[in-house]
Design a protein around this nucleic acid. Structure first.
Lengths: 138, 138
DNA sequence: CTGTGTGCAAAACGTTTGCATGCCT
DNA sequence: AGGCATGCAAACGTTTTGCACACAG
């Protein structure tokens, strides 16, 4: 996902309406590499569109996830995080401050199911979560 | 974690009390490869110790996690799952039935942080989650 | 006897839903 | 005009907490 214009196209292609809320949420998400939670998205959107509701944030994130424009990260035990970068990549989460870093390395040549499972279990993808302590927390 | 005797030792080493509830919870968990949720643990413990409360399940799971006897899996978006196998391994989750399979393969020779991050970010471990559809659901 | 563990009920938390209103197309 | 989107409040499911009592050490 690149620009607000792209969202306009994407929403139109899905027969969905272009609303200021959706555009503002998209604006907050695009090029955002901080993997925000719904609440963080809400707070950021509120600054540029104060009338927005939490419900709309949740529904819009769900919509964007369903049409494949963002990815829901199950990496923090406390809440869901959202990633506008839908290219395959992995993550590093600091055990201390919970900050999430992107890891852009292609592990697919080496990360496969063992042969014993390969024939019975399809793999649509995999996700690696590195744990550690970041340099700021160390 | 192997036997109830081991739990007795472990709890004693941590200055914790050995209670029938803890032993029953441990009995349900040990050698359990189904990655149960707290509710599933509760239901299973209830069969052999009907007086147990949900609170005790949660508190005991938290305790066992804190002393490192079980691992909390953040893999299902809906609830936490618990794994008594604390040896390094990975998981496969069926997108359809949410069943979790163990993957015992050592990917550590190939899965490392990129050099650019290596010096600043310590890695205490990593966890791979394969997604796909299991043979029962296919 | 002391203090940790238990269990109930209630709270807390993130998230979802029902429904009336609003607004994009 | 029609129908999807919004926003409020209430519901939801999971997990946590306060507190009184029980019981392991």
């Amino acid at each position: 996902m690149e620009t607000v214009e792209k969202l306009t196209t994407v929403l139109r292609n899905h027969g969905m309406k272009i609303t200021p809320q959706r555009l503002m949420i998209f604006k907050v998400l695009e090029k955002n590499t901080s993997h925000p939670s719904a609440e963080e998205v809400y707070n950021k959107v509120k600054k540029i569109y104060p009338a927005v509701s939490f419900t709309t944030i949740y529904k819009t994130l769900e919509t964007l996830r369903d049409i494949g424009e963002i990815k829901e990260l199950i990496i923090d035990e406390d809440r869901k995080h959202y990633d506008p970068n839908i290219d395959i990549h992995h993550h590093y989460i600091c055990s201390h401050c919970k900050k999430i870093l992107d890891i852009f390395e292609d592990f697919s040549p080496h990360v496969k199911l063992p042969d014993s499972l390969k024939s019975d279990y399809t793999v649509t993808g995999f996700q690696i979560s590195f744990q550690g302590v970041c340099k700021e927390c160390a």
